[in-house]
Amino acid sequence: MSKDNNTDLIGKLWDLAPISIDLLAPTGEILRVNHHQAGKLGYQPAELEGDAWKSIYTMPSRETISQLFSENITESEPQVLQLRTRDRSLIEMAAHFSFVDDPTNGRCLMIAKIETAPVDQQVVQLSQDLDILKGIIQSSHHPSWCIEYPEPLDLSAPEDEIIRQFFDNRRHWRHCNTAMEKMYRLPMGESLNQHSVDEILGRNPANEEFVRELIKNDFNLEGGASYDQRYDGTAFYVENDVQSEVKNGYLLRMWGTVRDLSRQHRREQELLYRKSQVEAILNGIVDPVLVLSEDGLITGINAAVSQTFGWPSERLLGERIHQLAEAKDVSDYLLSELLASRPVSRMEFKIACRDGGILMTEASAGSYTSNLGRGYVLVLRPAQKPQLAAQRVS
């Protein structure tokens, strides 16, 4: 077939196409319009060819077209354009754009359009909404993910079997955003969606416990802890907020956000270490030591308290100092002095022992301040051996 015959065939297809097509020049001129579009607008093609865009396109549509001309692309996503008919009424059309090189006018824009029915408008709107949501999720600073199970989990199975399926059934990342890839230190240029879920959420005792929590909460969980693996080889604790899609008792997919708990975990370990150090120091002191809250609650004791007065720690912790003092007025005076920020030194303080005896001590106390508030440390040095109640009466 000759080149002229090809041109004639293309021209016939252009004119007979059951959709609206036009060709626009970057100068704002309509170069060509097919019969379908011209008829829709109430014109003959010759009436529009050579006219300006503004004769049929509304201002918002012309701005869209101008923006496309300014971008260095060959095609664009479908959009809705408004066209004006001969009688000035408006028609909305779903438009597809592609650029063609015209030997006379240079880079021109061909727009193929279909008049939008309500369903078509909804499809375009849904497509735009989806793009917006994708953009929001992808740009979020909060790591987010979605795991899909082509081989769904049978949630009616026993717990151990669900745990096995969770790790062994086929699964893949349906979505992971950029923040997720940064948290797991994925090599630059790679997509987490192309990697195996097992590389991050592998089977280990901590993650088995995580799945048990998911099962207890019907796979909708806030603050579920898991022990994950980064791509640089380091393991770390994370906290997951999880939601899921379950149909007919089968888990199809689950999604959520994740928070890095490694700093918090290290902080907890440091605090536990410091706590053990303080306990070791307190228990190494031969005199009884009590830690009090600002209102006189006993919040800590050392081993010498139980050894000297006979009271087990569980009987004293959470009680007021009044429970240990023989006379309430003396303990009230002690607290009033401490509240007034006056240090207490060598104050006589009688302690009621568990066996009914009374032990005279010399009390020394000072205050401390923490992020939980103010408190006091009370050191009781026995001044004599315990005196039994019968001896006091005699």
Rank of each mutant, 00 (worst) to 15 (best):
D129G: 10
V123L: 13
A389K: 07
Q125Y: 11
I301A: 08
H322G: 04
L324H: 09
L214I: 07
G356W: 14
L31T: 06
D168A: 14
A352D: 05
C108D: 04
P382F: 07
E148S: 08
L155G: 01
R266I: 15
V197W: 01
R62K: 08
I132S: 08
A325R: 05
D22K: 10
L83M: 13
P158I: 03
D8K: 12
V124A: 08
S276H: 15
Y149G: 02
E75M: 08
E279W: 03
Y149E: 03
A304V: 03
T64E: 07
L13P: 07
R185N: 09
N105R: 11
R392C: 02
E213H: 11
I132P: 00
F210I: 06
E115P: 10
E47S: 05
S226F: 03
Q37V: 03
I56P: 00
L272T: 11
E279R: 09
G11E: 15
R164T: 10
H322C: 01
A94R: 04
R266P: 09
C176N: 11
S226D: 06
P118W: 05
C176A: 14
P18D: 13
F309R: 00
E159H: 03
V258G: 03
P386H: 00
R346F: 14
L24G: 01
S55Q: 15
R84N: 10
K385G: 10
L13N: 11
L81M: 08
G42S: 04
A46F: 14
T361E: 07
P26Y: 13
M360F: 13
I147C: 02
S364L: 06
L31K: 05
T361Y: 08
F210P: 01
R84C: 11
N217R: 00
P382K: 02
N371P: 08
S140I: 06
E213W: 06
S89C: 11
G223N: 02
Y368Q: 08
I91G: 12
V377C: 09
R320W: 09
D4Q: 13
V291A: 06
V377P: 00
D87Y: 01
S262C: 05
I30E: 05
P60E: 11
P143H: 07
Q121A: 09
L130K: 07
E294Q: 10
